[in-house]
């Protein structure tokens, strides 16, 4: 594995050098942008605080970050895996189409806006802590899970306007507390034990392994599912002249 120290070189040099190897580890990241952008193969290990646009258009590679990440991570990601051992800034996974993003800590505003799914591409975002406002806005497919492990299942785990305008996909929240202002075009249903086993176990199994958590302990909490209720979406929005 190629080992690089971000303190020792400038941003462009660093990225050029990182592109020369499939597997690369970079220490002391500090705001360098677009690391792992559109990367197809191999493994990238980052420590420090990488900059905005990390893993955008990611196309198959795996990226592990030991630390917090900033804004616009996994933007329009297509496939691969990103694990963040820390928290994420705003606009995480915007328009992500496929692959998986695992965050151990919190996510900022607008996580998972317009995430989608297409054929075998099923995007998955799992947030270990809480999420800011506008989580999963316009959700068009794929899955978002908010675990709130730092909160417990009797707390609200999202900010305002969760899932506004979503029309497909699913948001799972490990809490019995419904997000405030949840739009009336969305359904909120607390899951049975069987549903948890069937739907959540396949989604969570890799996540708990990566972050060394107990699957049983995670599943022990109350989970609820948010989906679009197509019967409540207004039909007569437009009128032809």
């Amino acid at each position: 594995m190629l080992k690089l120290d971000a303190l020792m070189m400038d941003e462009n040099e660093l990225k050029k050098e990182a592109d020369t190897a499939e597997d690369v580890s970079i220490i002391n990241c500090l705001g360098q942008r677009y690391l792992g952008c559109a990367r197809k193969k191999g493994h990238m290990l980052l420590s420090g605080t990488p900059g905005n646009g990390l893993a955008s258009y990611l196309d198959g590679a795996r990226i592990d970050v030991d630390g917090n990440v900033q804004d616009a991570v996994a933007d329009t990601m297509n496939s691969g895996l990103v694990t963040i051992h820390g928290s994420a800034g705003d606009a995480l996974c915007y328009a992500m189409r496929g692959g998986r993003v695992f965050v151990s800590g919190n996510a900022g505003y607008r996580a998972g806006v317009h995430m989608k799914a297409y054929k075998d591409k099923q995007s998955l975002l799992i947030i270990g802590g809480t999420a800011g406002s506008f989580l999963g806005e316009y959700l068009a497919g794929g899955t978002i899970i908010v675990l709130g492990l730092n909160k417990g299942d009797d707390s609200p785990l999202t900010g305002f306007f969760c899932g506004n305008g979503m029309y497909a996909g699913t948001i799972y929240i490990r809490s019995r507390v419904k997000p405030v202002n949840l739009s009336d075009t969305l359904s909120w249903s607390v899951m049975s034990e069987m549903e948890k086993q069937e739907e959540l176990v396949p989604l969570l199994s890799d996540y708990v392994k990566i972050f060394s958590l107990s699957l049983d302990a995670v599943l022990a909490g109350t989970f609820a599912r948010i989906r679009a209720d197509s019967s409540k979406i207004s039909k007569q929005l437009y009128a032809a002249v």
Binding site: G31, G48, D71
Partner: peptide, 8 residues
């Protein structure tokens, strides 16, 4: 605006 600028 960015965490990295604080960490710097």
């Amino acid at each position: 605006s960015e965490e990295a600028a604080i960490r710097a």
